[in-house]
């Protein structure tokens, strides 16, 4: 097809669309209606020109945030057998129930809320833990063998389980050895999880350890850390118990869930079967970080008493 023909077809299509009111003539200087004020919209929003004043002069879309707890608890079941019952059921869980259906599919609001939650999680994935928080607890930072940023961290878990040589040197220099309890913080897959829970959990673990008459080693932060880093730390510091607080992979619209992985005298070759874990640590719906802190100290005492962790502790 030559260019002249193509241009003619494009022109004909545009003419039809204009006649139908879908495309505004280029010469139009129709003012923006007040209700879609450009001043209040984010600067990245592309102005949308009204197609015809008779269609939308009173169109006024100004939505509340659908992600508030109240909005999430609104039921959408058509003609429920027990409307109050649906609300009570919904209040018992953070899972997306009472959402209703369109045929066998979900309703539009539930579909878009899910997509919104996924979107914000995607946007938050590649962030680092706030340095101010680490400073607050005097945590020095060491790094694993990951050198290529978050992308490499995601693709090479093996590197995230090993401390680099510089890290080993710094830990040897700064950390007290042969302690009862060694607390370590790792970013794992969510910086937000550490930021949301550390302020509450750190003091409980520290004070709980000291109240139990146990020695509390020099805590530090590991960047690009996987759970397997426990082994390297156990070998270097030789503590009775290592507690690793680490960010879990982000859930939908919720990146603040943290885990505490623990091992008794971790060493090279130890696996998940040698470890215990308290997972889902977060406020409002998960294991509360204060309670989790106390629980973790209890587990550590049990490990010391039985000189075991993981499956061996369970069988003890």
């Amino acid at each position: 097809m030559d260019d002249t023909k193509l241009a003619a077809i494009v022109e004909a299509v545009v003419r039809e669309l204009k006649a139908a009111g879908v495309v505004q003539p280029a010469s139009s200087s129709a003012p923006q209606p007040d209700s879609v004020s450009q001043a209040s919209a984010p600067s990245s929003v592309v102005p949308v020109k009204p197609r015809s004043s008779t269609f939308n002069s009173d169109l006024n879309i100004d939505l509340p945030d659908p992600t508030t707890p109240e909005a999430r608890l609104k039921p959408y079941v058509d003609h429920p057998k027990d409307a109050a019952g649906v609300r009570a059921l919904m209040a018992s869980t953070s899972a997306r129930i009472g959402v209703g259906r369109a045929g066998p599919r979900s309703k539009t609001n539930a579909l878009l809320l899910f997509q919104g939650d996924h979107a914000v999680t995607q946007d938050a994935l590649y962030r680092d833990v706030d340095q101010k928080l680490l400073d607050e607890f005097n945590l020095f930072t060491v790094q694993t063998k990951v050198t290529g940023g978050k992308q490499e961290f995601l693709l090479r878990p093996d590197l995230g389980r090993l401390l680099n040589d510089e890290a080993k040197r710094i830990i040897n220099e700064k950390c007290q050895k042969n302690v009862n309890i060694q607390l370590v913080i790792g970013d794992g897959l969510s910086a937000a999880a550490i930021e949301a829970n550390l302020r509450q959990m750190f003091p409980v673990i520290k004070q709980g350890t000291q109240a139990a008459g146990l020695t509390f080693g020099t805590p530090f932060f590991v960047k690009y850390a996987r759970v397997g880093i426990l082994n390297d730390i156990g070998e270097l510091i030789k503590p009775d118990v290592v507690i690793l607080l680490i960010g879990e992979r982000p859930g939908l619209g919720r990146a603040e869930s943290m885990s505490a992985y623990m091992g008794y005298k971790p060493k090279y070759g130890d696996t998940d079967a040698d470890r215990d874990v308290v997972c889902n640590i977060f406020e409002n719906g998960g294991t509360n970080p204060l309670e989790a802190g106390a629980f973790v100290v209890q587990i550590a005492q049990k490990m010391r008493k039985n000189q075991a962790s993981g499956v061996k502790l369970k069988l003890a």
Partner: peptide
């Protein structure tokens, strides 16, 4: 079968 495909415990969809 998970509510809206979002597992509120395992953090996956």
């Amino acid at each position: 079968g998970v509510p809206m495909g979002d597992d509120s415990m395992l953090s996956y969809q």
